[in-house]
Write a protein that binds this DNA or RNA. Sequence first.
DNA 1: TATTGTTATACTCTATAACTATA
DNA 2: TATAGTTATAGAGTATAACAATA
Lengths: 160, 160
Amino acid sequence: MAPRALAKQTNAEMPDVVSDLEILIGYNMKRAYVAIQKDFRAALGEGGLSPRTFSALSLVVAHPNISQSSLARLLGIERSGLVAIIDELERRNYLTRSHVPGDRRVQALVATHEGNAAYQATLATVQAHEERLLATLSATEKHTLMQILIKIRLTDKEDI
Amino acid sequence: MAPRALAKQTNAEMPDVVSDLEILIGYNMKRAYVAIQKDFRAALGEGGLSPRTFSALSLVVAHPNISQSSLARLLGIERSGLVAIIDELERRNYLTRSHVPGDRRVQALVATHEGNAAYQATLATVQAHEERLLATLSATEKHTLMQILIKIRLTDKEDI
DNA sequence: TATTGTTATACTCTATAACTATA
DNA sequence: TATAGTTATAGAGTATAACAATA
């Protein structure tokens, strides 16, 4: 028989148990991610980079001259969805699109000096936000969590 | 000084390191959740419940006669956003809205027989999906993960 | 034929604000 | 005044499909 996690009427005996959702990893992962994202946005404030824009900038800084196609693949999103993100980073003067000799289809992305500086500052803010938010976790717990998250992520065959 | 996680040019020495994102829990949590959600939807198939609709149904099953306001609070979403979810569950004949004596503003939500049956079947499918997807994790790892996720979730003051 | 960047478009999820009917 | 449910609306974030330029 399939596991039946929770009897129907738990209100009386176990008022703290909200529903079967509590034993589902997907549900708890979503709630945890929502909490992290909320704090991320609060930490970066009005006018700060959104998580996805920060991620894109991080990859451009780490991979100078990366193409938009490669970047979209690394982020796990469609090329079409990346356009608005790169538009925003270009508008902020954080990177430039430049044509490369040899293949005139490609737009090589390079972070500007301003973009590099903004990235380093933002990264420090993001790291501070995570350290503060996850202060109740031990170093071992953080390490274990990261290992598990990467394991789960890589169950997706289309990832990377 | 703030920690500087990654030097600028890692391509040569560490081709596997994609960027600082790899050490950020928020980023890895998002990628892991996307993988889980994708598999959840694939497991439930065309016409299956979405994660949020399944969550709402779970809470209605566990809490007969719950109000929409209480349900929204438990799910961590706005009352207005719940309307479409309840509409869908009502359209599927999985629950009924019924007025309660004493306060005619409230709509008590009760799962139908069909809704209870569909919920139990869907729950079994969801649990099978998680067991399959997370097969590489040990029981200890799953337990640790869950504890950490709940800890993170509860850093949000507005949660619960 | 295939690929890069782009646009047009639509769908999901969520939030804010305002309304109504009740309390 | 305050609350429950609802509607209207808008904004992220994402995907699919099609296009022009180029390979």
